[in-house]
Design a protein around this nucleic acid. Structure first.
Lengths: 209, 209
DNA sequence: AATTAGCAAATTATCGATAATTCTGCTGAG
DNA sequence: CTCAGCAGAATTATCGATAATTTGCTAATT
C-alpha cells in the first residue's frame, strides 16, 4: 500500500501502473504510450521505460521491441496457467516452511483468515488472502521462490478483480482453516494437497458472461 | 548466440552481461557501474539501466535503489532453491506436455541427448541439455511457465560454470534416456519423477573446495 | 582511541532534446 | 474495387547534460 518516499520515480510509476492493471482500470491489450504516462506523472519518459521493464518482468505487460508496450491480455488459459504455477510453487514452499512454522505464525494466519471472512469487497479479501499465504510460506527460507509466488499472486488478482467473476463471495476460508488444522497436527501432506487444490480454485470458478 | 540486429541496444547489452554473469566472468557481488558499462558498449547509460532491470528480473543481479547494482551472489542454498523450483515447474510442464508429444519431438530430444554425450566442455553440454528440456516441455502450451523455466535454467548454468564443481563430466544422459523411454511408453508418472530428481542433481553434486 | 560531523568526489537518477523507426492515410495504378 | 507504394505524423529509442544521493575521507570532539 505504501509508496515509500525514497523509492525511485521509476519504481513509484511501476507500482501505480501495476495497481491499475491488477484492478482492471487498464484494459488488457490497451497501449501504454510512454509520453502520455510520463506527462501524467510529471516525469520524463526514461523512468517510465524502466517501470515498463519491471512490469514486463512481472508479466503484467508485454513489450515488443520498437512498437511499444500493451497491457498483457489474460485468457482463461493464462489464468489457469498462473494458478497451476502458483500451486506447484506454493506446495514446494510449504514443504520447506512446515518444519519452521511456529504457533504464533499459525495464529497470525488464522487471524488473516478471519479478516478475509469479514472482508466486504474483493480488494480487502485479496489482501487478507495474500497475507495468509505469505505467513504460512515465509519460513521456507527461499527468497526467490517467495518473490515468484508473489508475482503470480498479483497476476491471479487481476482475474479476481476483472468482471469475469459473477459476483463477490468469500468461499475459501474453509480451505484456509483445513490447511491450518493439518499444519497444527503436523500433517504436511494433507496441508500441501489442500493448498494445491485451493490455489487452483481461482481458475475454476465459472465466469460471469 | 544470436544478437539479432534489430534488437534494441538495451536488449543487446542485457544479453552480453547475462552471458558474462552466467559464464562467471563477472564475479558474484561485483559492482556494475552504469557509466563504465555504457562506455564499454559505446552507448549512453540509459539503455544500460534498462538492461539492468531485465537482468534483475532474471535474478542475475540485485539492485538497491540508489546505490547501484551488483552481480547476484549465489550460495549453495540459492543453487538448491533454483534447482527445486525448476524441478517443480518442469514436472508441471511435462504433465501438460506429455499428451502432445510426438515421435518426431522425442527423436529430436534423443538427438540432443546424444549431442550432450559428445560434448567436450560444459558450455556445449549445457546447450544440449537445455535443448533436451525445452523440446520435451515445449508442447505444454504454457508460455509463461516456459519462460520461468528458462530463467531458472540460466541461473543453474551459473553454477555449472563456476569453479565449484570438481571437474567436467556428463553424467545425466542416462536420466534423459530413462525419461524418453518412459514417455514413449506413455508412462508420464515415471517420467516426471525421474525428471524431478534429475533436475535437482545440479544442487547435489559435491563441490570442489 | 573512537565516534561522528562535514566536506569533496564519485555515481546514480532524471530531464529535455535528437535520431531512428513504425504507423497512418492517401494517391494512383492495375 | 483492391492493393502497392509513398509522404507525413506519431511514437519509440538513444544521447548528452544536469540534479540529487551516496560514499569515502578528513578532522574535530568527546
Amino acid at each position: 500500500m505504501p509508496a515509500a518516499t525514497d523509492d525511485t520515480i521509476a519504481i513509484r510509476i511501476g507500482k501505480v501502473l501495476a495497481e491499475r492493471i491488477i484492478a482492471g482500470v487498464l484494459e488488457p491489450g490497451s497501449r501504454l504510450g510512454q509520453d502520455r504516462i510520463a506527462e501524467e506523472f510529471g516525469a520524463s519518459h526514461v523512468p517510465v521505460r524502466e517501470a515498463f521493464r519491471r512490469l514486463e518482468a512481472q508479466g503484467l505487460v508485454v513489450s515488443e521491441p520498437r512498437r511499444g508496450v500493451r497491457v498483457a491480455g489474460f485468457s482463461m488459459d493464462e489464468v489457469k496457467e498462473v494458478a497451476e504455477m502458483r500451486a506447484a510453487l506454493e506446495v514446494l514452499a510449504l514443504r520447506h516452511a512446515a518444519a519452521h512454522l511456529t504457533k504464533a505464525l499459525l495464529d497470525e494466519a488464522e487471524d488473516a483468515t478471519s479478516a478475509g471472512d469479514k472482508a466486504g469487497d474483493a480488494h480487502t479479501w485479496d489482501e487478507a488472502n495474500r497475507t495468509f499465504h505469505r505467513l504460512i510460506l515465509s519460513p521456507c527460507g527461499m527468497p526467490r521462490l517467495l518473490k515468484s509466488i508473489d508475482d503470480l499472486h498479483r497476476a491471479s488478482a487481476r482475474f479476481l478483480f476483472s468482471g469475469w467473476r459473477a459476483e463477490w463471495e468469500a468461499p475459501t476460508d474453509r480451505d484456509h482453516r483445513t490447511i491450518l488444522h493439518a499444519l497444527r497436527a503436523g500433517n504436511v501432506e494433507t496441508a500441501t494437497s489442500v493448498l494445491a487444490r485451493h490455489v487452483q480454485w481461482v481458475g475454476k470458478v465459472p465466469r460471469k458472461a
